[in-house]
């Protein structure tokens, strides 16, 4: 169960891997940093918990958060003491690692499929509706004016604005309760995920056509980055905001977003293997963890474009990866219920 791996020549990465298997799919993983727990959102509607300081198999606790339903999205709560989750029961739940749950919102007969969290607030998407709440979960506003079902949400770095992806482009909202009209950035496509760059300059989406689309907010200029064999749905920014790592190819495709943006530049390609299904940039160093369709987890290094195999979680695609805020633990989950915590501490 535990091992220390010496990687390919020239690169030594020591870690301990704790791997196990759930009965149902791991939908999403997250790190509740203040509470020191990894959370695994499962298809059976529960959240499984592992404390980082004792990641052994017999300590798993399960919180039944969406009974008889599927959990569809998960994020750490803004205070880092627990998790926010949405399910196909139409409920948005806030749950602490101690098992205290509170229902933050319900949307009858809809699925809550999208969640975004910032220090200042929580947003969820259900059908065409986006709900905005305070970090404590009090309702702030509901934005209904979207042309189709909401497919992605992201706050800007300051938490003052929220971007919503949907068919035909994205909508930008201010995170306040006042009546407002969204600013629309249009691009004819079905946009299936969205992210806001840490420097605030770019909004980037993944599209149904297996491309990345981007807007430079200073002048709304379009950027289009293609060449993916699959939808680049997992998006992760490096700590310094310069690099955007994306899934959707047999390498981690990393765009250099300094200056005017990545359009027309050749991306860096890291960690070649099976189709990349999840990416997570290390919160401190220039490292990118990737999960692949064959269950392999790899790590690539930006400055020398090297990469190593970390661990094979199971035979099924990796669905989600997340680092603890201190960068010591990598949390991973797979479509077949395989799960793991990789401890890079010494």
């Amino acid at each position: 169960m535990s091992n220390v791996k010496n990687a390919s020549p020239g690169t030594q990465v020591g870690f301990r891997a704790y791997l196990w298997q759930f009965q149902s799919a791991v939908v999403a993983v997250a790190s509740a940093d203040e509470a020191g727990h990894a959370g695994f959102g499962l298809g059976d509607g529960s959240i499984a918990l592992r404390p980082f300081d004792q990641p052994d198999a017999n300590t798993t606790r399960r919180l039944i958060v969406h009974p008889d339903s599927a959990l569809l999205c998960l994020a750490a709560s803004p205070d880092g003491e627990g998790f926010v989750s949405g399910g196909d029961d139409g409920r948005l739940m806030l749950t602490t690692v101690d098992g205290e749950g509170s229902e933050l919102a319900t949307v009858p007969r809809k699925w809550i499929e999208q969640i975004a969290v910032s220090e200042g607030g929580i947003a969820y998407g259900a059908g065409k509706r986006v709900g905005l709440l305070t970090a404590q979960g009090a309702p702030v506003a509901v934005f209904e004016d979207h042309p189709s079902t909401v497919t992605g949400l992201a706050f800007n770095p300051k938490g003052k604005r929220l971007v919503v992806s949907h068919y035909g482009g994205v909508s930008l909202w201010w995170t306040k309760s006042e009546q407002q009209t969204a600013k629309r950035l249009n691009w004819k496509s079905s946009h299936v995920a969205v992210t806001w760059s840490p420097d605030g300059k770019f909004v980037m989406t993944a599209t149904q056509e297996n491309e990345m689309h981007g807007w430079r907010l200073s002048d709304s200029a379009d950027m289009r980055m293609s060449g993916y064999p699959s939808k680049p749905r997992s998006l992760s920014w490096s700590k310094d905001g310069r690099w955007l790592a994306t899934s959707g190819a047999e390498v981690v495709v990393v765009w250099d977003c300094k200056g005017k943006g990545p359009m027309g530049t050749a991306p860096m390609e890291l960690s070649r293997g099976a189709l990349v299904t999840a990416v997570a940039c290390h919160p401190k160093h220039g490292l990118i963890a990737s999960g692949h369709a064959d269950g392999q987890i790899k790590m690539g290094r930006i400055n020398d474009e090297s990469s190593i195999d970390l661990e094979k979680l199971g035979p099924a695609p990796i669905t989600s990866l997340a680092w603890s805020r201190d960068g010591r633990y990598l949390i991973a989950g797979g479509e077949d219920g395989s799960a793991g915590i990789l401890d890079f501490g010494t």
Binding site: S24, A25, D44, A70, L72, T151
Partner: peptide, 11 residues
């Protein structure tokens, strides 16, 4: 979206 969502509880 719905089919992907359903497969989260494929059993």
């Amino acid at each position: 979206r719905i089919i992907e969502g359903l497969f989260k509880r494929k059993d």
